[in-house]
Design a protein around this nucleic acid. Sequence first.
DNA 1: TTGATATTGATAATGAAACTCATTAGTAAT
DNA 2: ATTACTAATGAGTTTCATTATCAATATCAA
Lengths: 148, 148
Amino acid sequence: MALSSKDTHSVFTKFLAEKSLRMTSQRELILKTFCKQKKHVTAEELYDILKKLDPSIGHATVYRTLKLLSEAGIARELNFGEGSVRYEPDLDREHHDHLVCVKCGENIEFLDEEIEALQKRVVTKYGYELVDHSLNLYGVCPKCQETK
Amino acid sequence: MALSSKDTHSVFTKFLAEKSLRMTSQRELILKTFCKQKKHVTAEELYDILKKLDPSIGHATVYRTLKLLSEAGIARELNFGEGSVRYEPDLDREHHDHLVCVKCGENIEFLDEEIEALQKRVVTKYGYELVDHSLNLYGVCPKCQETK
DNA sequence: TTGATATTGATAATGAAACTCATTAGTAAT
DNA sequence: ATTACTAATGAGTTTCATTATCAATATCAA
Ligand SMILES: [Mn+2]
Ligand SMILES: [Mn+2]
Ligand SMILES: [Zn+2]
Ligand SMILES: [Zn+2]
């Protein structure tokens, strides 16, 4: 049962209010457009999409807002070693990791509770306090395996 | 029983020969210096160290050679989301992942065979052919937990 | 040696992301 | 509505890591 877009909006508004920041039309548009995306987008890709909806939108505002959305827990940053960060909606989704095809970029999301538990075991073993983790598996997808 | 530096040298030479590339004094110095490092270094950090040994060394040569060393399997690229890539010797070392303190950067290397096995299970489940993986755990180290 | 080719290092170019700042917009009290 | 305050915006600049260019140099095989 995914949360409605109204929820991300109110979560963001609340987050902003707590920091004496303001909900603006740009932030609303960026939030709404970001949440619609099916794929993990870069700031640049989202900017290109937004430009069509509001040609006056600024480069920096997209970067700034994605950062805010991450802080608010609405977005998650992903790093697949491409040189730029990707973002995905994170609020109404359960945690998952990624399996990426190195040939075509196809992206599978998976969740392995056993791996999750073992990670916690490692962190505990060394006396650390877990903050975050990043697990990316890189491989060749079935389709790309055929293409020799 | 680690391999001697003579081995990395011959591995690199063989790798270069197979690609009709040449072993040069710069590549020898970079290889030797890189393998001596105890920590994961960025290209920039290694460049600073190399400058003291050979002030004529070029920026681009360090970047280029680290890339070659990675292709040759002598170095491994690490991405801790800092904005720059780190490298570590990989030839005479067994695989491991990293637990990084988000406060002080302290870096623990660990190997969990169970996690490794489960990763393979995930990849197999989706019909992928595993190429690589990246697992980074981020936390607060015991020392930094004290500092409130 | 010589000729072909690879390498180098200085420098320029690139691309992502952060910063600057003058202008605009939102807020809350008058 | 007017005001005063503060935050937000977007154009443009800046930084930083990394890559590309290219003329000069080094290496190699014949
Ligand atoms: Mn995802
Ligand atoms: Mn390591
Ligand atoms: Zn593929
Ligand atoms: Zn620490």
